[in-house]
Simulated scan of single mutants.
Amino acid sequence: MQGRRKFRREGEERRRQDLIEATLDCVAERGLQGATVRAIALRAGVTAGLIRHYFPGKEELLQAAYATIMGRMTEQAKTALATVAQDPRQRLSAFVEASLLPPVIDARVFSQWASFIGRASSDPALAAAHRAGYLGFRDEVEALVAEVLVAAGRTAAKPELRRYAIAINAIIDGLWIEGCLAGDFFETRELAEIGIGSVEEMLGLRLREPVCSAKE
């Protein structure tokens, strides 16, 4: 088990985030049932009373923790967009690739996500957090696909873009689960290459420049 987190004292939002991180640690190690207010307080190095200053109860803290996981994965994938040129194809390729590499692919994050998703069907608040995270990721994909198609001189109505985004999200989800559960089965970047290739096949477009072999 990891030691206590050092509870920061910089400000209200930073303190709140520290409690969320302590919650995620507990969920990864103990599951939702084991992530009690007492266990979270111990991990954060604070009193249970201080937790209640920031969150009405454990359920609200769990909801905030799940929303953090979902939002973080999208943001981590989006950071890759800043590393490539403004070419729409490269941007979509970079987003898919980042979604299928560490730190997005991470066994610990998968453990946390699986704990939450198992309860989302019976917990309306967790279901709402899941829906918001899913739609946020899918909307990002849809916007990137729209840019690619416009640049290629193709038009796509909203329903078609929606279907593309749903399908690409499903491809990424499936490969992400594979990578988190059995990362050692795959070569470095193999899942990312499969993901990008699948999206290229779906759109009928190359997203990456072909690699030219050196002349002998």
Rank of each mutant, 00 (worst) to 15 (best):
G11V: 11
Q86V: 09
P102W: 04
D18Y: 03
A143L: 08
R91D: 06
R9M: 10
L205Q: 15
L62Y: 01
P210G: 09
A94L: 06
G45Y: 10
L161S: 05
C180G: 04
Y134G: 05
G197V: 11
M202W: 04
E21V: 12
K58N: 05
F110N: 05
V84G: 09
A77P: 03
L126P: 06
G179C: 00
A94H: 01
L19G: 03
A156S: 11
R52M: 09
P102C: 03
V211Q: 14
K78E: 15
I20K: 00
D139M: 07
A182T: 07
S213K: 12
Q2E: 08
S213R: 14
D123V: 05
Q90S: 13
E160P: 02
A48D: 11
A48I: 01
R38A: 14
R14A: 15
S93I: 03
R131S: 13
R5M: 10
L175A: 09
V199C: 08
L32Q: 01
L175N: 12
L149N: 07
Q2S: 11
G133K: 03
M1R: 07
L175H: 11
D106R: 00
A127G: 07
G197A: 13
D18M: 07
G197D: 10
V37Y: 01
Q76P: 03
E190H: 12
L161H: 06
A128D: 14
S115R: 00
I168L: 14
S93Y: 03
E140Q: 13
R162H: 14
F185A: 10
G133S: 05
L175Y: 09
N169V: 14
A114Y: 01
P103L: 11
T155Q: 15
G153T: 04
P102Y: 01
A80D: 04
V84W: 03
G49F: 05
R30Y: 00
K58A: 07
S99G: 14
Y54F: 15
S213M: 11
A114G: 01
R16A: 14
R4P: 12
V148H: 04
K78I: 06
A157F: 02
R8K: 12
E10L: 14
L203K: 07
M73C: 11
F116M: 00
V148W: 05
D18E: 09
T188H: 13
L203T: 06
G57D: 15
R119M: 11
R189P: 02
C212M: 12
L135H: 12
N169C: 15
E178R: 15
R43S: 01
R206M: 07
F137S: 06
R16G: 09
P88G: 07
E187F: 05
E21P: 02
L42Q: 13
F110L: 12
D87E: 15
G31L: 00
G71Q: 12
F7H: 15
R15C: 14
E193V: 11
D106L: 01
M202D: 07
D123L: 08
V145L: 07
T83F: 05
V150H: 12
L61P: 06
R9Q: 14
G179V: 02
A170F: 02
L50F: 08
L101I: 10
T47G: 13
T188K: 15
G133R: 08
V211W: 08
I171Y: 13
E29V: 00
V199T: 14
H53W: 09
V27S: 00
